[in-house]
Computed example of a mutant assay.
Amino acid sequence: MNYFELFSLAPVYDIDTVLLSERYRDLQRTVHPDKFANASAQDKRIAVQRTAQVNDGYNTLKHPISRAEHMLSLKGIDLRDESTTVKDTQFLMQQMEWRESLEDIKHSDDPDELIDQLHHSFSDYQAQITVQMSQLIGSDQPSELQDAADLIRKMKFMAKLQDELARAEDALF
């Protein structure tokens, strides 16, 4: 299913999330199972299915990583269950540095400063990836779509790092 069509949105990476939320609420009002309380069993089942599609679509389009994966899947590239790793050696080196810094938080004299540095470093890198993703993902060129797939893999890694940083931060407090 094309969730962009479901929400009547242009299939672009940089979507208007406010508009997405408005359309979500409108669709929910239209298909919510409560509206079909007195309907036939089949109509109730269809309402439940449509509600599930609307919820899935909203959750997919709301999050940048799943939105990008959805866009690529519409172009025939499915990344959801893959195990391909990033082959960018510069990124792999940066990963190791970030992981070492995450480990250093426990032993740092000023963990707050190190946490702030990591937050800024992660944010800066994610901003770079987002700009590149916006430029590549709308393409129909196979090489650019593969580059977008690599960026999604990096985005997934960055999301894991953000989670690890949040856990490290929580452990201090």
Rank of each mutant, 00 (worst) to 15 (best):
F36W: 14
A37F: 03
N38K: 11
N38V: 04
S40E: 08
S40H: 08
A41G: 01
Q42G: 00
Q42F: 12
D43Q: 14
V48E: 15
R50S: 06
R50Y: 01
R50E: 07
R50H: 06
R50V: 00
A52D: 06
V54M: 03
V54C: 07
N55G: 04
D56P: 00
D56K: 12
Y58Q: 05
T60A: 03
K62P: 02
I65P: 00
I65Q: 05
A68Y: 01
E69G: 05
E69V: 12
M71Q: 07
M71F: 03
M71R: 02
L72P: 03
S73W: 10
S73I: 15
L74T: 08
K75F: 13
G76D: 06
G76P: 00
G76L: 10
I77H: 02
D78P: 02
L79E: 08
R80L: 04
R80Y: 12
D81V: 03
D81Q: 13
S83K: 11
T85L: 12
V86Q: 01
K87L: 13
K87V: 15
T89Q: 13
Q90C: 01
M93E: 15
M93C: 03
M93V: 15
Q94Y: 13
Q95G: 01
Q95L: 15
W98V: 15
R99T: 15
E100Y: 09
E100Q: 14
E100T: 15
S101K: 15
S101Y: 11
S101H: 10
L102C: 11
E103I: 12
D104N: 13
D104T: 07
D104G: 08
I105P: 12
I105Q: 11
H107M: 10
S108N: 14
D109R: 09
D109E: 05
P111C: 07
P111D: 07
D112K: 14
D112C: 00
D112Y: 03
E113Q: 10
E113V: 07
L114C: 08
I115A: 06
I115N: 11
D116A: 04
D116C: 00
L118A: 08
H119L: 04
H119C: 00
H120P: 00
S121K: 14
F122S: 04
D124V: 07
Q126G: 00
Q128N: 12
T130S: 09
V131M: 06
V131G: 00
Q132W: 02
M133R: 09
M133I: 05
S134C: 03
Q135Y: 08
L136C: 04
L136V: 04
I137M: 04
I137S: 02
G138Q: 01
G138A: 09
G138P: 10
G138D: 02
G138Y: 07
S139I: 09
S139L: 05
S139K: 12
D140R: 12
D140V: 13
Q141P: 00
Q141R: 15
Q141K: 14
P142C: 09
S143P: 00
E144N: 11
Q146Y: 07
Q146C: 02
D147P: 02
D147F: 03
D147V: 03
A148N: 05
A148H: 07
L151T: 02
I152Y: 03
